[in-house]
Every structure is written in structure tokens, then in C-alpha cells.
Nucleic acid binder design. Structure first.
Lengths: 110, 110
DNA sequence: CCTATTAATCGTAATATTGCAATAAAATAA
DNA sequence: TTATTTTATTGCAATATTACGATTAATAGG
């Protein structure tokens, strides 16, 4: 056990949870917010910005890259990171459909 | 180690990650979607709907209740669950601020 | 070539999460 | 009171995640 039973859920439900899990750590939230704030590629030292060890940041970046939310292009000895706009928009649609669900006012409800 | 360093992040970043973590499991996504679909309190057997063991569902419900996303009121031997509309709206605002960040078209970017 | 610089990977320890059997608790019905 | 029904809790095993030291690429500049 300890293993999520993905097979009993819909693709949509699994997709939502995979994206949500990516945002489920403040370091990844901070990385993404920083890339948005910088508003261009960031080819500097993300480790200094966030405050975790370099291997830890690298690991978080890897996850975000794997999901396609960020892109990384080699620029000399450093790597340039930025938000993948298309994939971010696609993710937003999936998450939006889930979050923007609405309930009519129902007075019979608890 | 193995412990998230929440103290180095902002309250907002931690809040986003806590909500995201709640959606980071397909069972919790499924539970929430079902409560939205039912569109009223659900006082039936959520275990049959989702397909996990009763203690597992109970645990997921506990987490969602702890975050305030759902309410549960005792109704005889069973419990009535529904979305907490106010808290859901508050959560949506926090997550929305994060997800709806936008980048202007920047051709100098990678 | 050698030496910095920067980022990725490996290995590992600590903690967290998931899932369920067994059990307990709470309310109803007989 | 004694079942019955429904949900919560406990305890535990399996897996996942987080973090970082040590090491390994990969590139740039002598």
C-alpha cells in the first residue's frame, strides 16, 4: 500500500491531481511565481532566490519540466528557465474547469 | 530531512501549496466533483461512489474537512456532506491569483 | 591541456502519504 | 437491552516525497 490507485479514477481526475501535486510544495510555487515576476527567461541562480540547496532546487525544476510547465534551455554554463506559456494555459483550463464549478444557492442544503 | 521547509516561504506560498496538496490526490478530486454534481448534501455512501475502502475515504474526507472545503453534519447514523461554499470561494481566490498570472508576449524570451 | 563555474545525478536519511484490516463509537430500530 | 447501520479511529505496511552531501557532467576561459 501507500500507492495511489490511479486506475479507478478518470483521466481528468488524475490529470487534475498531477498538476495540483506540482503546486503542492511551496518551493515549486515560489519558483513559478519568480519566473512570472521576472517576466523573461531567468538564467541566474535560482538557488539564491529560493533558499534551498542546489540539488533540491534542481529536483523541483526537474518535476516542473517533466510536467511541461517550464522550459529550460542551456546558455553557456548556466540554464535559462521560463514558463511554458502554452502548457501553462492548457493546465489552467484543466484546473479552471475543476475550481470554477459552482453551486446554485440551495437553501435546502446544510 | 524529508520535511518541507515552510518557514522560508511566504504565507501565501504555503497557503497555495496546502490547498494544492488537497487536490493532489484523485480520490479527493473525485469526492469534491461528486459533491458538486449532486448539487446538495450527500448523505449516502460515498464509499460505493469512489471505490476505495471505507477507512480510506473517511481519511480523505477528514483532510477536506480540516481545510474547510467541505462540511459534514450528522444526520442519524449517517453524515451529510457538502461543499463549504464560502471557503471554496476563498480558496478559489487564492488559487486564482496564482494560476491566472499572465506573461505578455515577449519575443526575446526562449 | 587545466581550472573555474554551473547544473544534473546519485545515494541516502528523514518524514509524509496512501490504503486497509480491525476495532471503536454513535445513532437507530427492534 | 440487543442488534444493526454507518462513520471514525487505530495500527501498521508499503510507497512517495523532501532535502542535501558528494559526485559527476558540461561548458567557458585561460
Amino acid at each position: 500500500m501507500g500507492l495511489t490507485k490511479t486506475e479507478i479514477f478518470t483521466d481528468q481526475q488524475n490529470q487534475i491531481s498531477v498538476f495540483a501535486k506540482a503546486f503542492g510544495h511551496p518551493a515549486r510555487v515560489a519558483i513559478l511565481q519568480y519566473l512570472f515576476k521576472i517576466d523573461t527567461c531567468f538564467c541566474g541562480d535560482l538557488v539564491k532566490e529560493i533558499g534551498l540547496a542546489q540539488p533540491t532546487i534542481s529536483q523541483h525544476l526537474k518535476e516542473l519540466k517533466y510536467l511541461g510547465l517550464i522550459k529550460g534551455t542551456v546558455e553557456g554554463t548556466s540554464v535559462c528557465y521560463c514558463i511554458d506559456k502554452e502548457n501553462w494555459a492548457a493546465m489552467k483550463e484543466v484546473m479552471g474547469d475543476f475550481l470554477d464549478q459552482d453551486l446554485p444557492e440551495n437553501e435546502e442544503c446544510c
